[in-house]
């Protein structure tokens, strides 16, 4: 029987949420094709993996070998390529983030198989896959028909829902990839967590500031609003280019593309490049002095007014709901 393979990503002894999204997406393909759904994990913590049962995954190929303790893209993609071949995998689903994207590219070239990145929908029609993928930073999207014995997809996090669908038993099958030390071409020698700081890519709510904030010294206003909402702090390109905020906070075409539940744009006029990076948010709140600012055209809610007046008032009102 052909298989659908999803990557179960374990980071710092936690399964990444996107893995459950992949399981659900994979389960839906399995139901349509009658293929078997398999997970693959690089981990030594088998107890932790039990959690996947909740989402309906009943078999995991486990790579539990000290060579794989630290991430290396060439090593991990080589191992995955062996899993795909050994288990007759037809569909490979990986997360569309830094690791998933680079692994998928190498894997696709290695297997000379079709690969569509950053999919926001994936359906099966007559044995052929149709993937929807944003292009031009989300200003447009294409539907692509993919055919081939092996098909690889990376799925955009936060877009596919993780649905609970409990299963009773989890089978874990160990697999020892045939790799040597010279397959580990890159070594992560140091890593830092942004402690206590939410990343705009992972947050349910993002609060961003633009030129209207007037200077880096006023950014505490944005941070305070983010704090009340439990949100990540983002920034417009103007603010990043001015050196007021770090690039990893930039939302937009040359920054990050986000799709949170709520996006709050403060003092951001809404240049087309910025809109491209946040227009797929579920709800958008804009605060801007200029009632004609383009940001209001994409907003669900808007406050026309001075942000130095509006944000403190909004914080006060929001706090009432938190009590």
């Amino acid at each position: 029987m052909k298989k659908i393979l999803v990557l179960i990503e374990v980071l710092e002894n936690k399964i990444k949420r996107v893995s459950y999204e992949l399981i659900t997406a994979g389960r839906k393909i399995a139901e349509q094709t009658n293929y078997e759904l398999l997970g693959v994990a690089f981990s030594s913590n088998t107890e932790l993996l039990e959690k996947v049962k909740e989402f309906g995954l009943s078999k995991i190929i486990l790579i539990n070998n000290s060579t794989f303790e630290k991430y290396s893209v060439s090593l991990f993609s080589k191992a995955l390529s062996q899993v795909v071949t050994k288990y007759q995998v037809e569909y490979v689903l990986l997360p569309a983030h830094t690791y998933g994207l680079e692994i998928a590219g190498r894997l696709a070239a290695n297997l000379e198989s079709p690969y569509i990145s950053d999919c926001i929908s994936l359906t099966i029609d007559n044995g052929k896959a149709i993937a929807k993928k944003p292009i031009y930073a989300g200003k447009a999207q294409i539907n692509v028909l993919v055919d081939g014995n092996i098909k690889i997809f990376t799925l955009r996090p936060n877009v596919f829902t993780a649905e609970v669908n409990p299963t009773e038993k989890l089978e874990i099958e160990e697999f020892n990839p045939d790799v040597g030390d010279n397959d580990k071409k890159e070594v992560v020698v140091n890593s830092f967590r942004n402690e206590g700081k939410l990343d705009v890519l992972e947050a349910e709510i993002v609060v961003s500031g633009g030129r209207g904030i007037k200077g880096p010294e006023h950014y505490n206003l944005i941070e305070e609003l983010a704090n009340v909402l439990g949100a990540a702090v983002g920034a417009s390109r103007a603010v990043v280019d001015a050196g007021w905020r770090p690039h990893n906070e930039q939302v937009g075409q040359t920054g990050k593309t986000v799709s949170p539940t709520l996006y709050v744009a403060c003092g951001i006029s809404g240049a087309i490049q910025h809109l491209a990076g946040m227009a797929s948010s579920k709800f958008i709140l804009a605060i801007n002095k200029d009632k004609d600012a383009p940001i209001f055209k994409v907003a669900d809610y808007g406050i026309v007014g001075d942000l130095f007046n509006a944000i403190p008032k909004l914080i006060k009102e929001l706090k009432k709901y938190k009590e």
């Binding site: 294409i142 028909l145 227009a279 994409v298 808007g302 406050i303 026309v304 001075d306």
Partner: peptide, 17 residues
Amino acid sequence: INMEIPHRARKNIILSD
């Protein structure tokens, strides 16, 4: 198959401060 421009209907409730 095709290319499309995504469109999301927005509520557009724009108020004052």
